[in-house]
């Protein structure tokens, strides 16, 4: 008997910022829609373990998308994308899942994202709480760690968008974000995914991750968790958004819930899903209970 996973992949056409994109997404499960956003420079493959987790998919319709220029979402036709340097901004990051949810006619989905997708969970809770019943920021904060922000885009491009450097090095560099407790095969899978990225895409994503995502203390205090609950999960081995950075956000947002994840890093969904789900499942149960009340 064939061994087939219960994940279905399809393409959908989305117009964002006046440009039509052919977008790849995968889904599994039924119930409350759960949109899943990947990290900078990678793609939706990161969520393969979650999409196979029946404890999640029995109550949630999990939808993971590849942002344009990532994974199986090719660069758009009709745009001479090769004539300019790729860079992603906050407006596009917010508009994209909103548009996907509209086109798929999802009713107040949950959004969960990791790394830049985690920062986006905070921006969505702040900017459009009426659209989401809850957001889950995995490795999110007011801003990324200042030690990395201070590196500057020019130096980021020198490391991650450099003709002298093979993209295998982008994969290798991700070790800095990975817990030493992670199974080796998972470490290598993360590195593989990063080595597959399009030219300049990871560096361009970091424009949002390090610079355009910046939530002020006043903005953080204004997040209304009665409209859109904000959950925060951060791994103790994440130097880019450490637990202390997430705690600074949690201290400002009334009603949000923050949990530090032990022995996990910046990619907990892939590093060790068996550990990550112990933190995720109680959140999903709470969202389900609230949705039923």
């Amino acid at each position: 008997m064939a061994k087939i996973e219960p994940i279905q992949g399809r393409y959908i056409y989305l117009t964002v910022g006046g440009i039509e994109y052919r977008v790849y997404f995968e889904e599994a499960g039924n119930g409350i829609p759960l949109l899943l956003g990947h990290t900078a420079g990678s793609d939706g493959r990161q969520y393969r373990h979650l999409l196979n987790d029946q404890e999640v998919t029995r109550n949630f319709r999990c939808i993971v998308f590849d942002l344009p220029y990532h994974g199986k979402s090719l660069p758009p036709h009709g745009v001479q994308w090769w004539t300019h340097e790729y860079s992603i901004g906050k407006k596009f990051m917010i508009d994209f899942p909103n548009t996907l949810a509209e086109v798929l006619e999802l009713k107040r989905p949950v959004y969960m994202g990791s790394s830049m997708g985690g920062h986006l969970a905070i921006d969505l809770a702040l900017e459009c709480p009426e659209r989401y019943r809850a957001t889950i920021a995995v490795e999110g904060a007011l801003q990324s760690a200042i030690e990395y922000v201070d590196v500057g885009m020019a130096n980021i491009r020198r490391e991650f968008d450099n003709p002298n450097v093979n993209r295998a090095s982008t994969g290798a560099a991700m070790l800095l974000n990975i817990s030493p407790y992670s199974p080796e095969e998972n470490v290598r899978e993360i590195q593989w995914e990063y080595s597959c990225g399009g030219p300049g895409i990871f560096a361009g994503d970091l424009n949002y991750y390090y610079y355009e995502h910046k939530v002020s203390e006043q903005e953080a205090r204004s997040i209304d968790t009665s409209k859109c609950m904000l959950y925060l999960l951060t791994g103790e081995y994440d130097p880019n958004t450490s637990p202390s950075e997430t705690q600074a956000l949690a201290d400002l947002v009334p009603g949000c819930k923050f949990t530090e994840m032990k022995q996990l890093g910046h990619f907990p969904v892939t590093e060790d899903y068996t550990k990550f789900r112990n933190y995720l499942l109680p959140i999903l149960s709470e969202i389900k209970a609230k949705s039923e009340s």
Binding site: V165, S179, P239
Partner: peptide, 26 residues
């Protein structure tokens, strides 16, 4: 944390790591 890689040790714990193209390449 964050002694688990050369790069995180450099940024978070002041270990000195060269910043040449060759360093990134290798």
């Amino acid at each position: 944390p964050f002694y688990h890689s050369l790069q995180s040790s450099a940024v978070r714990h002041d270990v000195v790591l060269s910043g040449t193209d060759a360093t990134f390449a290798y």
